[in-house]
Amino acid sequence: MTALLEGRGICKRFGGLLAVSDVSFTLNEGEILGLIGPNGAGKTTLFNVVNGVYRSDGGTFAFAGQDITGWPPNKLVHLGMARTHQIVKPLNEMTALDNVTVGACFGRDYLRLRAAHGVAMQVLEQVHMADRANILAKHLTIAGKKRLEIARALAAKPKLLLLDEVLAGLNPTEVAKMLELIRAIRDQGVSIIMIEHLMHAVMNVSDRIMVLNFGLKIAEGKPEEVVRDPAVIEAYLGSADIADKLREVQ
């Protein structure tokens, strides 16, 4: 297996708060890595540092064999890294199609407008939003906006997709559909890191899981190993009971 993304000793500080503290990890090609941990553990911050929204206060990143430490988000997109936002950021006064076209235009292939339109239409079909192509993004439901986040990221033709809580706020049917979509994306050869609080869902789709707590990595491994880990149970799951139930669900 070859590593697609490697982080070494990543730190991020906000004033006196160490939001991410000396975290190292590797993501292999074609893998889905689940990222879990309590609220405020530093999961989103780690994403922000990976894709260059924030500058790290220490540590290095390599992506597809290239040192990308300190690169801005727009350059990383061209290299094949795309992401979604936990708090959705739709381009409100633009149609869903135009939102996704932006992703395709400025993505890995840096397409021209006409070609980008074609890709955007395809991606909207893939995420089952083709019928909403001409609706202004602000008029979409929350589930629609989350799908739009994914569609924009996919239109960039990424090698790595960072998903930040795309399941939060969806009803069970929507969750099932979204999980199906995430697997389909992986099957196209896209590697994924997904932040998620819905434990059975992460356990279900992840090849491996990494756990953060107060900025520190406290565990990493196969889903069934991680839920049995005493440190994880104490910090996040709460009781061994829950861990047992989760294993059953799986």
Partner: peptide, 25 residues
């Protein structure tokens, strides 16, 4: 009606999102 214009509109709607989508704002 150009790609350049689309990038500008993305900046107008949400500059942070535009950068993350690849626009050199």
């Amino acid at each position: 009606i150009s790609k350049f214009g689309l990038g500008l509109f993305a900046i107008r709607e949400d500059e942070d999102a535009a950068v993350v989508l690849g626009v050199n704002t």
